[in-house]
Design a binder for these strands. Sequence first.
RNA 1: GGCCCCGUAGCUCAACGGAUAGAGCACCGGUCUUCUAAACCGAUGGUUGCAGGUUCGAGUCCUGCCGGGGUCGCCA
Length: 603
Amino acid sequence: MTPSPAVVNPPRRQPQAKDDRAMNLFSDLRDLVVETLQAMESDGALPKGLDLANVTVEPPRDPAHGDMATNAAMVLAKPAGMKPREIAEALAARLDADGRISSAEVAGPGFINLRLAPALWHGLIRGALAEGAMFGRSDLGQGRRVNVEFVSANPTGPMHVGHTRGAVFGDALARLLEFSGHDVTREYYINDGGAQVDVLARSVYERYREAHGRAPEIAEGLYPGDYLVPLGQALKDRYGDALLDRPEAEWLEPLRDFATSAMMDRIRDDLAALGVKMDVYFSEKSLYGTGRIEAALDSLEKKGLIYRGVLEPPKGKLAEDWEAREQTLFRSTAHGDDVDRPVRKADGGWTYFAPDIAYHHDKIERGYDLLIDVLGADHGGYVKRMKAAVSALSDGRVPLEVKLVQLVKLYKNGEPFKMSKRAGTFVTLRDVVEQVGADVTRFVMLTRKNDAPLDFDFDRVLEQSKDNPVFYVQYAHARICSVLRKAAEAEIACADAELQAADLAVLAHEAELALARRLAQWPRVVEVAARAGEPHRIATYLSELAAEFHGLWNRGHDEPALRFIQEGDVATSQAKIALARATGVVISAGLGILGVAPVEEMR
RNA sequence: GGCCCCGUAGCUCAACGGAUAGAGCACCGGUCUUCUAAACCGAUGGUUGCAGGUUCGAGUCCUGCCGGGGUCGCCA
């Protein structure tokens, strides 16, 4: 997904003065490289006025290539009219002279591989302990206001597993953006204005009749689910037999309101069980009869984007019942859509698109800098027209980013698990949370990219083995907590303040530095994930971090010097515990972005 | 047919335009009188669907094709 410009490019200049709170070795080193390049410009080693925007400092994939690598020489070779190695040699020599760099070597086509002085790693660990839960936070978003609309399930039934993934993804995305300095509103659009809520009301009416001992007539097209039975009973309690055998006109509206409200209560409860709390529930119905739809369309009309016309029939598709009709159309093609879209049906009523235009109009007027819609993948065909509408309504000022969330494929014991409303094997959000818990549900649903399908095996996600990423990460955290408990028993002072004061120079072993290197990536991982709008990167990173930690832990078997607690050596123990504790801080922060609570022990 | 998403090891999947494409599973071989072995270490495994293009550099960006899924006025 193309990163949204509003997220990527701050409207103001890049701040030169860094936030001291943001302990980010990669941006620190990039600053060093950029300053060095600027110095080279001013003393003639490089031509002046080079664009340094594409200069990056990144972790190399191969640890043999050092701690960090910069592409500066290759990026600048062409504009500077010099050979990459020529620039690289000169830059490497200057970087090598800096106290923070222990070595700078030119490699490959012109990479400069940097090794950092151990003191930087030690500073990083101290910084992580000092910042605690703040470690990795940034002001990337510079307080820009972002509206994340997600779930928005129709209030006609309970939420199922597909909604669950959207809910978890949207909430984690919101947390990720908050962690990165955005001001986020979580919002749910209640589709309570369309024909489907009339169907809901009629379905509930049958359950009401059933509650009076009549046989319910669940006609084709009505919602057959048992979940409506209690609503029928509740209606009987409220209305007695006053609505029995009455014409629909008398009961449709009150039943619609009653049923919608009851369903929304249920949905709110389900979301709460998952740990999702919305800031705003926006009612579609509130757009009707208030002139808001008309106002939004007027706004488009003033821009010359509304007209009466006849659409071409869809090409290549069987369209037996298609007949040409004049409709009121939105000229969405003027804003990148493939065809213009109807906003009024042939019978004069609004299409579903019209209130959606009004809804997004409302969001724009509320002053957001960025709108994000999280939708099911089956709504993919809807993206272009909505982007066109937002672009037209805001005159291109407010970007709309749409995140499509793919299907969840359920498995039980490795066998595909088919859902069927009829067979009663319909899996609801509530079912999932009750069987595996909110934390496991959330983590597993965030291990895959949003636009890739996800396998969810009820048995595997509860397995206590390294095959299960939730367990694996949690186990690392539990081990760290265990170290701290053992240290306390051994009367080693290990409050964060005491650990920060420890002399970390003893942390010099490759396995320890490898873990520190991984910790140093944390702020960078958060930034990359936030820019891409991809919370799964956090989950992937946590698995890698946990693997690094488990690896170090187990090396303690063969090399007692690598154990975190060193018998009879408080100072060394404190240094090693500081490393473990810093790892715990990051795991905890990462799980926090995913909305998962870290565990302190496994039982 | 148009549009959107996906295609990477036998399987499930990672990879911010960077170097020799990485993990886990499966298969093979090691490590518990030990701070939690619910873990770790090692070996095997690749024409990143195909063909072009852009770039110093492409799994990643562009074009075309092949395969899978979704979607296509008067449902939401």
